[in-house]
Simulated assay, not measured.
Amino acid sequence: MKPRTVLVGTDWWTDCDDVAAMRVLVWAEKQRMIDIMAIGINACMEYSVMSLDAFLQEEGRPGVPIGIDHKATDFGGNPPYQKNMAAGTHSTRTNADCEDAVRVYRRSLAHAQDKLDVVEIGYPQVLANLLLSPGDDISPLTGLELVSCKVNKLWMMAGNWGDEGNGVENNFARNPRSRAAGSYLCVHWPTAITFLGWEVANNILTGGTLTSSTDLVAQAMRDHNSSRGRSSWDPMLVLLACQGDETEAGYRTITGTARVDEQTGRNSFEILPNGNHSYVIKTKPDEYYKAAIDNILESMQRA
């Protein structure tokens, strides 16, 4: 079967679950499940690109196009893992070397031969700005038109859907830009969206079995004070998206229409049989998902 092409967005930020998720992503590409077309960073810090570039090189996947939202400096935090990851490795790119993430996405979509999937494990403002982008030197199509023509589906770690689809979660609610972008995205994104929410992965800790002193995922876990494991929000969403089928991945879906309140970031969900949105509910014990993620992380651990 031909690998599915994916665009990936990440808040390569303070949390180490993005690092674990990126390893799952590279693993899936090595398994010929996906092809990584580009990565967009939607939380900007001094070592954002340098640390991600270093990680991708260490994982055996150099040269992935990286875009960044240079304005996304308003999410706070000072993660030690980024500086430590960039130090002593072979990173060749910095924030200044990378284009705006919207341009990287527009170019990727314009050049895509077939429809691709978008995988988002961070904040939604890059995707919202993509929809709002006008035609330019890359393509005469607007961002909305490019997404309509070239995207099959959006897989997104966002929302807290445990209380009958109502809750508050960081990726939507972090700050005014994320709240406004989440609200806009849910109304205007033209393809199907599958959400994996906070409640699905909060109690599933992975990465705690990594013991290497030189492995970058293990180092990021230690830097985050999560050497015994971290909640698996991002790696579980990435693995689900790479598998590409909710049922086969061990979930059932609730279908309808999602909304995000622009002022509070609170998400809500109206159940509708023909809705364009879904959120997932686990159908297997937590240990099933934990083992799947840990096995992948361990299989690529550096000695």
Rank of each mutant, 00 (worst) to 15 (best):
L154A: 07
G159E: 08
N160V: 02
W161Q: 05
G162D: 10
E164F: 06
E164I: 01
N166K: 15
N171K: 15
N175C: 04
N175V: 02
N175R: 00
P176W: 04
P176E: 11
R179N: 03
A180E: 08
G182Y: 03
Y184S: 11
V187A: 09
V187G: 00
H188L: 09
P190W: 10
T191F: 00
A192N: 11
T194W: 01
L196E: 10
L196K: 13
L196H: 14
G197Y: 08
A201E: 03
N202A: 13
N202C: 09
N203K: 12
I204W: 06
L205G: 00
G207V: 10
G207R: 07
T209L: 11
S213N: 13
S213K: 14
T214S: 10
D215G: 05
D215A: 11
D215W: 13
A218W: 00
Q219Y: 01
A220F: 01
R222E: 03
R222K: 13
D223L: 04
H224T: 14
N225S: 14
S226E: 14
S226K: 14
S226Q: 11
S227P: 02
S232K: 08
W233Y: 15
D234H: 10
P235G: 05
M236E: 15
V238L: 04
L240W: 05
C242K: 02
Q243D: 06
D245Y: 01
A249L: 01
A249H: 01
Y251C: 07
T255K: 11
G256D: 06
T257P: 01
A258Q: 04
E262N: 06
